[in-house]
């Protein structure tokens, strides 16, 4: 069994020590810093990107909040404006209809007055006619002229104050 050949122990131990120490130095001073830097940089990059993504997300959320606030404000303002305008128009419409109804009432009153006057004139006409007719009839019957004012007062007494 070659493994038990003691004569070959020193050379194996010597070269093992040389190689192992060389590899240890290589790992400590070259490999670990090199791989470590790359892994750290990657971790750093990932962390940075995550941080930036979180910041962007916060920005987006703030923008959405601003937008929604603006939207609500605009809606509230529009509603207030609408209410104000409606009230204004309603008041205007009421004023106009009041004025119209006042004018119409005035016209109705004037019309009624005119009707009364016409009636009065008509009644007067009828009286005069009746007095004339009565005067004429009396003159025919008596054969003499009848004073017109007498005929008139006679008609008035018959018709009364109608």
């Amino acid at each position: 069994m070659p493994q038990l050949n003691v004569a070959m122990f020193p050379t194996q131990l010597f070269w093992l020590a040389v190689c192992f120490v060389a590899l240890y130095l290589l790992v400590t001073y070259v490999i670990v810093p090199r791989v470590g830097t790359v892994l750290d940089e990657r971790q750093q990059r990932i962390d940075d990107n995550l941080e930036r993504a979180a910041a962007l997300k916060a920005d987006a959320e703030a923008a959405i909040a601003t937008y929604e606030k603006a939207l609500t404000d605009a809606r509230v303002k529009a509603q207030a404006h609408l209410r104000e305008k409606t009230a204004e128009l309603q008041a205007e419409a009421e004023a106009r209809s009041r004025a119209l109804s006042e004018r119409l009432a005035g016209e109705i009153k004037a019309g009624e007055a005119r009707v009364m006057e016409a009636r009065k004139a008509a009644v007067e006409g009828v009286r005069q006619l009746a007095a004339d007719v009565a005067g004429d009839i009396a003159a025919r019957l008596t054969g003499g002229a009848v004073e017109s004012h007498l005929a008139r007062s006679a008609v008035d007494s018959v018709m009364g104050s109608r």
Binding site: F14, W15, L16, C19, A22, L26, V27, I31, R34
Partner: peptide, 25 residues
Amino acid sequence: GVDVSFTNSSLLMVLAVAAVAIFFI
């Protein structure tokens, strides 16, 4: 006075170190 000849075992140790170095670097 000690025999520390470079042997086939030593060669493979050196190759292993070289392979590790190449593998990582």
